[in-house]
Each structure stands twice: as C-alpha cells, then as structure tokens.
Measured scan of single mutants.
Amino acid sequence: MEVRTIKVFTTVDNINLHTQVVDMSMTYGQQFGPTYLDGADVTKIKPHNSHEGKTFYVLPNDDTLRVEAFEYYHTTDPSFLGRYMSALNHTKKWKYPQVNGLTSIKWADNNCYLATALLTLQQIELKFNPPALQDAYYRARAGEAANFCALILAYCNKTVGELGDVRETMSYLFQHANLDSCKRVLNVVCKTCGQQQTTLKGVEAVMYMGTLSYEQFKKGVQIPCTCGKQATKYLVQQESPFVMMSAPPAQYELKHGTFTCASEYTGNYQCGHYKHITSKETLYCIDGALLTKSSEYKGPITDVFYKENSYTTTIK
C-alpha cells in the first residue's frame, strides 16, 4: 500500500517557510505537534488534498525554529505562539472599519479597549522592536488589523473576551517599542525636605499616572512627601515624541487643539466601556464603527496623549 502524501510549508514567522512532505494517514499533531492554519487549530486533523502548498504555523520545537521565533517575536515564552494563534482565530472574524481616516474595530468580545489602543497607536510616533509587531502594525494602518490585535493580546497575556485596560495595554506595548531616546527629568520640591531631581528613561519617561493635564504637570502637581507634608512635583525636561497622561476616570474637559487623542471610560472596574476622542479640525468621538463630532467635550476621561518633541522648564 502506497503512502499518500502532500507537500506543505511549516513556519513560526510566515517569513521562513520549511518544506514538509506530510503523510495523509496521520494527523498534523502526530507529525508536527500543535499546528495552526489561519489561526485555526488543526492539530487533530489529517492532511487533505486542499492543504497542498498551504502554510501551517507550528510551535518552535527545534533550534532553527526557536531562533526564527525569537528573532521575529522577541520572546522565548513557549506558550506565546499558541496564544497568538488562538487569538487570531477570533480577531480574523472582527470587522476593521476605516473611521475618520483611522483603522478602528467594530465592537465584539469586549474589544473596546483594543480599538482605543489601536486608534491611539496610529496617532503617536512609535516604532516597535519585534519585527512581528512592526509588520502587523503597518498592515493594521492599511486596514488589516487582525494579526496586530492578536499579537497585542498575546504580548499582554490576554484572551479574547476578557476586559482590558488601555493604560495597561499601552504599557505592555511600550515595553516592546523603541523608547531608548526618551528621557524625563522631574523635580520634587518640599518646604521641609528641599528639592530632589529624578531622571527617568524609556517607558517611565512617557507615562504618568495622577493627572490628565500635561500643562498642569509642567506647572506642578501636589504629591505627598515622605515627611508627610505636601510637596510639588513638576516637569523639568521632556525628550520624547509623545507623552501619555493618565488618571482614574473623572469628568474632564478636553479643549480642541490642546491634545492629540484621549480615552474615555464609562462604567466601573468590573464592567465598563471605552471610547476614543481625537482632536482634528474639530473633536471626534470614535466608538467602534461609530463616529460623532463636537466642538467641545466633557466626560469621564482616563488617558490623554500629547505630541511632544523637546521641553525644558522655565521655572527657576
């Protein structure tokens, strides 16, 4: 009895394709271990004539594949690729409408935090270190965002349907971005203890939790000093293409032309909904596939993004 075979390709990165001759009487799992086709788990399936010449994702289970996976995804987590594939199996079914010149995501599976993050990423200057993220990001900007969303979920250790947080998501993504040249110098002034300067680099240099107003941050924000008295913390120097200011959701007025974009969060910790506000020729609110415009805006804002380049204080 002759062994019926077909020729397929296996890959971990969709760049390096490895030619395989597979036995049609055995499952993919018996031949390769966990195997995925377009995100779908085909591990328990036997090869079919229609699979001839198709590319299958496999887990990096030998040295060659491990090197290829690390170079593309910059992670050695053995569960990463499987999590990416199972997320992709959902995100490829989502709709990605162009809204006001940006790629958004039609609401499904509690994905409003991903839509808000995706919209924000198209408006701030950011370059990702893992080629996987950078490639998928370019495709997302062009309207094909399924891979990018699935990668975000995998890097953030999230599953489809789980509630997510924009600030946490951005923080994970910033860790995989090139923020080497970003720098922030802060000064804390206390009447009792004097003053202390701190220099922050990388992710810490672009994120701040405690106030939404970048102007206020430049002037000074009140913080408790270690001595128990009130101290003032203010920005001395900022070198970065953008800054992200966050605070627990509270009524906040966004003035046209003073910011790049913002995240609105309605609801409580267990259950809520994100919308995205962007400042173009007027203010726009993007909620999944829905767009509304207004000249002014007041609502429960939790993150505001500002364009920056270089700032030095005039406070002496």
Rank of each mutant, 00 (worst) to 15 (best):
Q30K: 13
M170N: 04
V42C: 15
V160A: 07
L254Y: 00
Y214I: 12
T278F: 12
V236F: 06
T312N: 09
V189T: 11
G164P: 00
Y265K: 00
M245N: 03
F80M: 04
A142H: 15
I15A: 07
E204I: 00
K255Q: 12
I105D: 05
K191S: 13
A250K: 11
Q175E: 09
N49E: 13
S50P: 08
L59Y: 13
I223L: 09
R184I: 04
A87Y: 05
T103C: 08
V206K: 00
C190S: 01
L102F: 09
K255M: 11
D23I: 15
S86A: 15
N14I: 06
Q195Y: 10
Q237A: 14
L121M: 09
K92D: 03
L102Q: 04
T64K: 12
E168S: 13
V243F: 02
G288Q: 00
I15C: 10
D165R: 00
T75M: 09
C227N: 01
S86E: 15
G33A: 05
V99H: 13
T292V: 10
V3P: 14
L126A: 04
K275F: 00
Y73L: 03
Q230T: 14
N49C: 14
D165K: 02
N16I: 09
D62N: 15
K54C: 15
L254S: 00
L65F: 09
S240K: 01
T198M: 14
P130N: 05
K106C: 07
K229F: 09
T64L: 11
A250I: 09
V8I: 12
V236E: 06
P47I: 06
A145Y: 03
T120E: 03
I315Q: 15
C285R: 07
K275I: 07
G143T: 02
I277E: 03
L65N: 08
K298T: 10
R66I: 11
S86I: 14
Y234E: 01
M170Y: 03
T258K: 09
S79P: 10
K158W: 05
T232D: 05
M170F: 08
L290C: 14
L179W: 07
N111G: 00
P34K: 13
V99E: 07
L114D: 03
S25M: 11
G257S: 07
T192N: 13
P131L: 04
A69E: 07
T278R: 07
L173E: 00
G194M: 03
Y284T: 12
K316R: 15
H176I: 06
Y138F: 15
Y113S: 05
